[in-house]
Every structure is written in C-alpha cells, then in structure tokens.
Amino acid sequence: MPTKLEVKKVFNKGIYTENPVLIQVVGICSALAVTNRMMNSLIMGIALTFVTAFTSLTVSTLKSHTPKHIRMMIQVLIISSYVIIVDIFLKAYMPEMSAALGPYVGLIITNCIIMGRAEGFALSNAPTISFLDGIGVGVGYTIVLMAISLVRELFGFGTIFNIAIMPEGFTSWTFMVMPPSAFFILACITWFANNQIIKKNKEGVEKK
C-alpha cells in the first residue's frame, strides 16, 4: 500500500506541479474542442479520469507478465476497451451528453495523457499508486478544462452549467463559442500557472 506522503505527492504532481495540460502540454486537442460548455467539460474530464485510472491500474497489474516489445499493443488494447465502455455507457444512460460530445469520447483513445501515464508511471510502479496517479492526472486535466469552459460559457452564452448568470440583454461574445477562443484562454491560464510555479520554485531555493 502506498504511504500518505506518496499519495499526496502523486496528486500534487498530477494536479499542480506536473499538470498534464499546463505543464506537460499533452491532451490539449480535447481541451480545446469540448470546452464551450461546463457540463461537457465535466463529463469529458470524468470520462478521461476513469480511463486513465483504470488503464494505469491494468497496465501496472499486468506489467510483470507483459513482454516488453509488445507492451504498446497491450496498452492500446486496454485503453480502447475502457474508452468503448465509457462510450457505450454514455449512449445508454446519458444520450444527450453523448450527442453533445460527439466524436470526442472515442478520441480519448488518442489522448496522450493516458499512454503517457501508462508508459511513464504505471510500468514502473505498483497498481494502487498507479491507479491514484491516473485519478490525480485526470483531476488535473478536468480542472483546466473547467477553468477554460467557465470563461467560455460565461461570456459565450451568459450561463454557468446552463444557469443564466449574466443580466438579461447581455450580448454574448460569439468569439467565445468558437474554437479559437480556447487557444487564447488556455495560453493565458498556462502563462499564469507557469509564472506561479516558477515563483514558488524560486522561493523554495531562496529559503534554503
């Protein structure tokens, strides 16, 4: 079992110091595509967290039996299986969400975060901690998506989670609804986050 400190470290890395979107800059295609509504981002984040966590768990469990040269095939097989499960689940129980996310659920398979964690973490760590690492990274991804979609939905539709926030007569910013706006917002958030982390690192050095 992983110690408390290890768990804390894994979550801290996934959400903050090594955030997949902001610091590693992986998996940003979907971060740009599904962020015009907060609900879409939330479901997408949960789906990705589920897939990453269970893929890491499975890869880590099987790692001592898996021949090295076919490990990528195995990983892709595992990832796609979980993605198909998510896709079927959404179609069966949340058909509206499935329609809203469209092809992006299937495209989770190609999300670099999942294979990155499988290769970079799960292959050299125990199953439980790999599972938690998957959740941590997934949460990190979800938070960034929610932050982008908060800005986009608020200005693009005047709503948050479909609840009207802006006063009546508010002219919605068409630009926010279209994909290019996500580039600008993501860049601003990345800029801010990197500045924070650099500042923190400096402080750490000075204290020593």
Partner: peptide
C-alpha cells in the same frame, strides 16, 4: 510463442468484457 499466446489471451479477455457490456446495454441504446 509466449507473446503471441499472451496477446491472444488478453485480447479475448477484453473482448469478452466489452461484448457482454454491449449485450446488456444494447436494448437501451
């Protein structure tokens, strides 16, 4: 033989899981 056999077993396992999941939700979909 080992990698081939291993791949086959893994594939069959996952396909079985997916097929049964699909089977139980298809009516609903």
């Amino acid at each position: 033989a080992y990698p081939v056999l291993y791949m086959i077993i893994i594939t069959i396992t996952f396909i079985t899981v997916l097929a049964s999941f699909n089977y139980f939700t298809i009516d609903r979909i």
